[in-house]
């Protein structure tokens, strides 16, 4: 689980071009959207692609994404339970 969380942080920084951030600066429970990392709606769509591409998880309901993408912690938990690759 800790490895997965580290992996997610690295991937998110790279995929979403968060140049000014390092892995150490993202806490497991930091909110990804809003006041936290400040991600926006396009980032959310890009995370949906990442879930599909790297973990074989297809999300089609945008509302579903909202609860999964709350934090690194919630993302990791969901991936652990649902990954197909």
């Amino acid at each position: 689980m800790d490895n997965l969380k580290l992996e997610l942080k690295t991937k998110i920084i790279e995929t979403l071009n968060l140049e000014d951030l390092s892995v150490e600066e993202i806490a497991d429970n930091d909110p990804l959207f809003g006041d936290g990392l400040g991600l926006d709606s396009i980032d959310a769509l890009e995370l949906i692609v990442l879930m599909d591409k790297d973990y074989g998880i297809k999300l089609t309901d945008p509302k579903e994404g909202k609860s999964i993408f709350q934090s690194i912690q919630t993302m990791a938990t969901y991936i652990e339970q649902n990954r197909t690759k």
Binding site: I42, D43, K53
Partner: peptide
């Protein structure tokens, strides 16, 4: 096949 919304825009 993983079209990127962040590139598409």
């Amino acid at each position: 096949y993983f079209p990127s919304p962040a590139v598409f825009v």
